[in-house]
Design a protein around this nucleic acid. Structure first.
Ligand SMILES: [Mn+2]
Ligand SMILES: [Mn+2]
Ligand SMILES: [Zn+2]
Ligand SMILES: [Zn+2]
Lengths: 138, 138
DNA sequence: TCATTAAATGCACTTCCATTGCATTTCATT
DNA sequence: AATGAAATGCAATGGAAGTGCATTTAATGA
């Protein structure tokens, strides 16, 4: 078990107070968050810093961006050993039409999608919309 | 075989010169188009008119919107007998990372996606990214 | 045909989010 | 402590979606 500091350093991300706070915020959230969500959680910090921080996390491979179709980009930490870039590792995302929350279904890998002759599949984005467990009354 | 005028009227869309032109433009294109694409094709027309026209087409069920992850909304005419609203009818979309074009793979229906207990699936958006047949040299 | 009326169009403006340039501050290293 | 590079903060930009309202167009009936 490594500390967050060690994790960041192992990914070549310089450790700063802000980055630790943002990492912890993302880790504590069970849902994908927007930049505004982060902004609201850290009112003292500048929006640009938060923006560039999640971008850095993304580039260094400890977070991934989610396009759930709402038009607003969301972010979530990668799971242990996640490699978002590799197609076979891609999990699906669920967007709840009621509470408007989006979560990673990391257990649910995307099935192999057949494409026509001549087409090469490199990447797949799959978003399921509906009602989440909390909103459906399980 | 019905004329475009008859099709529009059957869908409760008033026939105008502009709408006929835009419909023909969409029909001729084999790929999904952005509002800017339409704008460039009809420089004399106002952007708002084009915007509201495709919105009308969408609401009346003769076109559908595509979110291919580029951040720019695209539109395409529905196939004969298409009913985009019904989940089981949803087809997948392919976005080429090289030519940047997005096409409807209307033959390729989206497979049934399993979601965890308590979750209800109402809608699915599936976008495959990669290299299209034209760009791969088939 | 002409008047009436509703819908379609055009123009201006707004909003929202993503993104960048640059000055300043912080931090690691010597 | 001095240096340089990276991180941060502030201001501004850009792109696309969406809206309010005045004007034009087109369908309808007198
Ligand atoms: Mn995820
Ligand atoms: Mn389509
Ligand atoms: Zn919910
Ligand atoms: Zn291509």
């Amino acid at each position: 078990m490594q500390t967050i500091e060690q994790l960041l350093e192992s990914k070549d991300i310089r450790v700063t107070a802000m980055r630790l706070l943002i990492y912890k915020f993302l880790a504590q959230k069970q849902i994908a968050v927007t930049l505004s969500d982060i902004e609201n959680a850290f009112e003292k910090a500048d929006r640009t810093t938060l923006y560039r921080t999640v971008k850095t996390f993304e580039e260094k491979g400890i977070a991934h961006q989610i396009d759930d179709g709402t038009g607003i980009t969301k972010y979530a930490l990668c799971e242990e050993g996640c490699s978002c870039e590799i197609e076979t590792d891609l999990h699906l995302h669920f967007h709840c039409n009621i509470c408007n929350e989006t979560i990673c279904l990391t257990e649910h890998k995307i099935p192999q999608i057949k494409v026509p002759e001549g087409f090469v599949s490199e990447n797949v984005n799959l978003v399921v919309k509906g009602i989440c467990d909390k909103c459906s009354g399980h």
